[in-house]
Write a protein that binds this DNA or RNA. Structure first.
Lengths: 151, 151
DNA sequence: AGCCTTGTCTAGAATTATTCCAAATACGTT
DNA sequence: AACGTATTTGGAATAATTCTAGACAAGGCT
């Protein structure tokens, strides 16, 4: 989902961002957002549901989906699609790509080099305007590589 | 899906590639492969099914999925995942990224610049081995940009 | 040719992730 | 408190894909 408006996370709080979009910061939205911020792995909607439910037993999965969509639309959260699997969610708003380890499944954030553009390596036709990118690599993470080597 | 083995498309025919994986080139696999090669857009499995069925009315959707998986595993076809939508398939084996137009939905292939590496723009930790990448941009394609401008 | 093993295809059921829907609830304002 | 709107909820519905079991086909071997 494309954010409704760009967000400057250095100056706006989550509340302000949500209010800016004409929406409210409800308990559920805060709980979902907190669940993403606390463990900064890349949980699926069901993972988030499980986490949030321990604090807020009445919340429904539909609400978790709603909240994740809302937070994404406000630009507070990014969605990561790994191959054909369930969507994963990530509160890291800085420019980054994702690396997916094919051994252990972990997802690692790879920051964009400060002097680079994400699309620098590809030939773009004239007049192509890029508004978003989703860049994913797969392979073997350092930890798994080490485990392999020590066998 | 990760290819079973790297493939050199300049020297091997599709048959040879499939045989190399210990599999057969059946009528169905050929028909699915041809459907991808003829119209080099980025069809979904159902699109491919529709096309193939006009030539081979008895083919089942499950078979189309099987064939697409097999062709992908052999390295003859690549899978493109655009956001949460259905998987799309692409017989372009050269290194490229995908651009998805948010107005018209078209998918455009963007070749990798000859002097660049796909991951060049991102900071990689030590000992990270990358075996595959899926790079997607979204925005407005040249044609839609022109239509917008002329309004 | 006949038989065997294995690979492949098919239809339909099952699964998974997600979205939709209608009713209930909560919020913010007057 | 009353009102209008936003949000949440549970369950049903949908979409894409995968699974399963049986039928079919191909190639090797006797």
């Amino acid at each position: 989902m494309k954010p409704l408006a760009p967000r400057d996370s250095t100056t706006l709080s989550p509340e302000e961002t949500i209010h800016g979009a004409g929406l409210r910061m409800t308990d559920q939205r805060r709980a979902v957002y907190d669940a993403l911020m606390v463990e900064r792995d890349h949980p699926t909607a069901v993972d988030v549901f499980t986490r949030v439910r321990s604090r807020m037993p009445g919340i429904s999965l539909a609400t978790v989906y709603n909240c994740l969509d809302t937070l994404t639309a406000c630009g507070l959260v990014k969605t990561v699609q790994i191959e054909r699997g369930p969507a994963r969610f990530c509160p890291n708003l800085s420019e980054h790509a994702h690396f997916h380890c094919e051994k252990c499944g972990t997802v690692i954030d790879l920051p964009l080099r400060s002097d680079q553009q994400p699309h620098g390596a590809w030939e773009l036709p004239e007049n192509l305007s890029i508004t978003a990118h989703e860049v994913a690599f797969r392979g073997v993470c350092p930890r798994c590589a080490e485990n392999e080597a020590s066998k």
